[in-house]
Design a protein around this nucleic acid. Sequence first.
DNA 1: CTGTTAGCGCTTTCAG
DNA 2: CTGAAAGCGCTAACAG
Lengths: 334, 334
Amino acid sequence: MLSQVDVARKACVSIMTVSRVINGRSNVSKDTRERVLQAIRELSYFPNAAARALSRNRANVIEVTVPRRDYFSSSEYFSELIFSVEAVVRQHDYNVIFNPYDPAGPVDYGALYRQRKVDGLLIVARSMSQQQVQSLCSEQIAFVLVNSRRDDKPLSYVDVDNHKGAVMAVEYLRSLGHTKIAAMTGGTEAINSIHRLQGYRQALQRKGLPMREEWVIEGNWSEESGYEAFKKLAHLADRPSAVFCANDLMAIGALRAAADSAVAVPQDMSIIGFDDIRLASFTNPRLTTIRQPIGQTGQVAARILLDLLSGQATEPQKIILEPTLIVRSSCAAR
Amino acid sequence: MLSQVDVARKACVSIMTVSRVINGRSNVSKDTRERVLQAIRELSYFPNAAARALSRNRANVIEVTVPRRDYFSSSEYFSELIFSVEAVVRQHDYNVIFNPYDPAGPVDYGALYRQRKVDGLLIVARSMSQQQVQSLCSEQIAFVLVNSRRDDKPLSYVDVDNHKGAVMAVEYLRSLGHTKIAAMTGGTEAINSIHRLQGYRQALQRKGLPMREEWVIEGNWSEESGYEAFKKLAHLADRPSAVFCANDLMAIGALRAAADSAVAVPQDMSIIGFDDIRLASFTNPRLTTIRQPIGQTGQVAARILLDLLSGQATEPQKIILEPTLIVRSSCAAR
DNA sequence: CTGTTAGCGCTTTCAG
DNA sequence: CTGAAAGCGCTAACAG
């Protein structure tokens, strides 16, 4: 393999000078620099990343680790996240290793770091044990939690304000004149689901709206569960006029259930989702929803990680991003 | 950083022995092996990837390079592809660097390879210049083309049989009794679109079905273009009873247009898509479509690349995968 | 079965 | 501004 010595020989300088030129150090005479650059070009020389990594003790690679796709997680989420992360770190000459893990088994997040195959991590995880976090912290691993929070440790995370998003949804429905507002949830385990449900309840309470337990249906994020939940709601004697769905997939299921039951959306029932996945704009009617800023999440998390790696980070950053109301056609004034 | 010497010291052996144990070589006595393993555990030692890469001249990383997401490319495609690729190479202790490129500018696919940051590439590209291919070949870079073909060079690729998929769609429609079958295309540039259109035409011809030029509407893969295309079709004096859409997104647009124009699907018009994206199963009615096996594509491509890297590859592999008809509810017998 | 030696290609440190 | 020497942590090749 071609190495600095070949370039050095050709340009009649030492390998140190070649190294300096490659790394853009200023202490090289213009003349010498030119000669070296010329030699590099003529030989088509490229520096060896492994050798650099070894001597600098830095791989210039970060890891994005995500749960391996299961039924409920959305490919759009992963796709948008990783594209946005990559776009940011690329500017700083970092590459991204994509490293899915099996959410079922015990996960060792630090594996690639310990081999110094990566310099830091972006972690997407539903839940991490106290011990997992502790391990990362005590090993001084540079990492940022993406779409989860943990305030019991001095670590950085970027999350979206799920609670607030739910409040926005309910308030929007209220502003349309709805008073009987139902909800379908993503289950009782996912922290996102819990926050969204809490937001829903709080908003109802603040607005003095009726809260009825049979208006809260437990789902599991899936389109099917949205379908079922809507059917239940539709059969209620005291039927709500609007429903807040904890994610778009369930809202899409609800839309399909409505069509099957001949209840007109939004005339007879308003439906609002959460996430703003791409499908949301292709439904009929197009889905009104709360947008989760995935791309922004990735960008911010990437920047924080880069700061961590550059050593100029000060405090752990705990960022909560704002959701946005996206008005389409699945909600109407009562 | 902890290194082999620390382990060696602790286990009272040479670093070579440590290296042998780590690499699972057989020529180490059971006793010594145990001692080394013990020392490794006690010290929490992990081998340094950069040092390995340098001395073995192998990074154990492959690259998946894809066009940065533009309007038409689907996040599901990328997501499914990269997850499936990663799952395969992981078995062989490889990691995946995800490397999007800007499809607008000139692309240098070999950049990471030349730095030996990766050992080989999976390339997703709409079109590559003769020169780009030539460069990869002459540099002896291990690579596999994903979802594109090139038979003018001894290189490996994995693609799906778009032509055949279109034929299957038309034949299915025919078997349902349709004779007036329209099509909406993905434009005249994309090779996929061309193949799918050719398949459509060929199937019509073989079946002796009427081919009318006003039944072929040019779209651009987007949902909007599907919407528009359907509207045009619906206004025709001699209206077709079924339409083959070159991708699911356009089919979804068509579905929405049908709802807006009060034409019942599938009673008044059958609609069939192509790709089987996830949205396809959530539409109303659920979309009948031709499934493109993305996951399988990724797996096969990854295996071919791994073979290439292991040096045991013989001939370039040119694989064409079969699409599958997925029957749902958007097509009905005439 | 185990150890010694000599690099892999680069950067850091120190000298000039 | 330029160069020599040493070493990052590992493995290949050879020797015993």
